[in-house]
Amino acid sequence: MSEKKPERREFLFTASYAVGAVGVGAVVWPLIDQMNPDASVKALASTEVDVSSVQPGKTITVLWRGKPVFIKRRTSEEIAEAKAVKMEDLKDPEKDEDRAKNPEWLVMVGVCTHLGCVPLNDKGDYNGWFCPCHGSHYDTSGRIRKGPAPTNMEVPKYEFVNSNTIKIG
């Protein structure tokens, strides 16, 4: 046998394995991707909420994409408390102005950023929310202050359609 032949064979093996791998990948991807959120789940991406009946200091909870969203009409004390917090005291520094465009209304996904439980209103060491699962404390702006959660509660994309209606998503 000459020196050339095995090289040629090796090339054919490598080429066959490569084509085979691409083929397997093309078949496996649909099997993996079918588990991702489907079209019907994605279609429910926005919700409109009437907030005219919410009294100052009260919170309503609405369902958006299967998750609770807190809509809180904050009192002036709560707004003042949120604004007075120094940035260096925060684990995930974020200004209250950036979280609540209209300071009276705080809209955020009511899911603890630790492991996904729903925090309780008006509880905890910072007068905001307290997660009963693993003890995370959030302030009146929904920012993490104490406990295992890594980040502030998420503010979703939302807008005021008119003065009484908020569109989330």
Binding site: I32, N36, V41, R65, G66, K67
Partner: peptide, 9 residues
């Protein structure tokens, strides 16, 4: 989200 097949369980 992949595990859930959505945005929540």
């Amino acid at each position: 989200n992949w595990l859930w097949g959505g945005y929540s369980v």
